[in-house]
Design a protein around this nucleic acid. Sequence first.
RNA 1: GCCCCCAUCGUCUAGAGGCCCAGGACACCUCCCUUUCACGGAGGCGACACCGGUUCGAAUCCGGUUGGGGGUACCA
Length: 530
Amino acid sequence: MDFEPYEAAYPPRQLPPGALVTRIGPSPTGKAHVGTALQAVINRALADGSGGAFLLRIEDTDRERFVEGAVEDLLAALDWLGIRPDESVACGGKYGPYVQSERLPIYQAAARRLVESGHAYYCFCTPERLESVRLAQQAAGKPTMYDRHCRNLGSEQVEARLASGEKAVVRLKVPDDTEIAFDDLVRGRIAFESQTIDDGVLLKSDGFPTYHLAVVVDDHLMRVSQIIRGEEWIPSTPKHVLLYQYFGWAMPRIAHTPILRDMSRRKLSKRSGDTSITGYRVQGYLPEGLRNFLTRIVWPHPEGKDVYDHAEFVRLFKPEDLPNTGPIVDPQLLDFINGQYLRRLSPEPLYTATVDYLQFLLDLDQDITFESYHPAAPIKHTLTRSELEAFYGAFSADPAYSERVLMLEPERYKRLSDIVLNTGFFFGALFRPVDPKLLAKPLGSAEQVEALLDEYLKLYQPDVPQAEWEQSVRDLAHQAGVKDGKLFMTLRIAITGREQTPPLFEVLTILGGDEVQRRLELAAAMPVSS
RNA sequence: GCCCCCAUCGUCUAGAGGCCCAGGACACCUCCCUUUCACGGAGGCGACACCGGUUCGAAUCCGGUUGGGGGUACCA
């Protein structure tokens, strides 16, 4: 089939002047990566800001690396992030299909057109031959490139070998002694000597296109006008430039973002930790927080702000402002930004977010390890599936109660997981008797602890005003000749089981008289160990 | 090896020849607030990779060195 009908089938879009059509083209080879999230946010913003469209195209031209469930994971991750494409596999669109494996005839027609116009050629070289050529080049210290062995085969011979069913690929015919250049919105003009560019494969022997052919054909047919993609694509852009030339198509505007690095400055990869979008969700980050963070490390806000919402980003962002240095995914900044979002939530939404989060974790049906940054080694806390379930049960039993708990917490937390890890003591069902050693820590002597707790229990009265309560504690401390702070701390530990909590009086108020009394008695009855 | 990109505090950056013995934010440290933690407030530590040019004058322009990153597949 000819290529022309496809041009007619996908006519130029009717959009207002200046409207940008953007896209992301992830390949379903694993868990959705944060780098993809970054590209999605930027491309979505550009389309939003210009009144254009943003589309999601699945680039699954490598059947070997295809991972079952990867498309679903990607869709779910983007959905969680709140990034919705205007056109995609999920929602359709007029320029589909949006999965490359369903567009094979298009690429084949395109490849044929290139062969016919003399810009590409069939190659019958076996993988073995290519391998040995490469080895020889390496040994000779030369660049490893295809040696153009099949570039000048006679057309009758080609037809005959094709007719006999011999396997072949289609390769790009790269010109000699030319400069191939393009303008990158952030880096300016980038030029390559054509000798350094390989006669790359466009169509594989299984009939699938390679990335190079597929992107160019799809971007053109889907009428994409602005490409923003990762820096790792710069070296293959000359091939794309050539293809646009050979096809006679206008090249979209193009910009390359620096690629995300981990703390060791390497390209962020699976090895450097969990780089999946879902992994960040598991750790308790809010979608708004992650999104803000991602844009923040690749784009300086004109006023230097760290925290800004999507609308503000859309309004202010220009691709030219992208930096050209590789940003490091800094967990401390992420925590800071996420914490800013967390504390903006009032108790009801925070409660809802927490419950949704817990349900999400439970659906994972496994133990969860929460990690937080520490210069030496990450600090890890693992909660078993049943501990999570218990927390969920307690937390969701009485929403009004949990909201009161959350009311005094927001500025203490950076992530939703902090809530799970730190508010357990507010729930009677989760409270465990205190460790005697910890209880004795502030005052040193277990006997004194027991005596003071008994004293306190005698004068204990629920629901007294804060000032009165505070004074009674201080009086007791003076009587016993201990420092105020130590008594407060002992009570804190007896009642909450921890050394760090929100202000004690507020905790007492939330827990209620009966529960406080129960815990006090429990602590006072602790066996004296010393 | 070859090709390409990049180079300001630990991190993200401001800076587009004099306004910079370099400004902000995160992190870190100190102090204040305080019954702990957190929040908040006030301070502090901390960088123009190096070498040559150009210029009256360079973080800013040019060249080189070094360093980092990416690419080099019938992967994307």
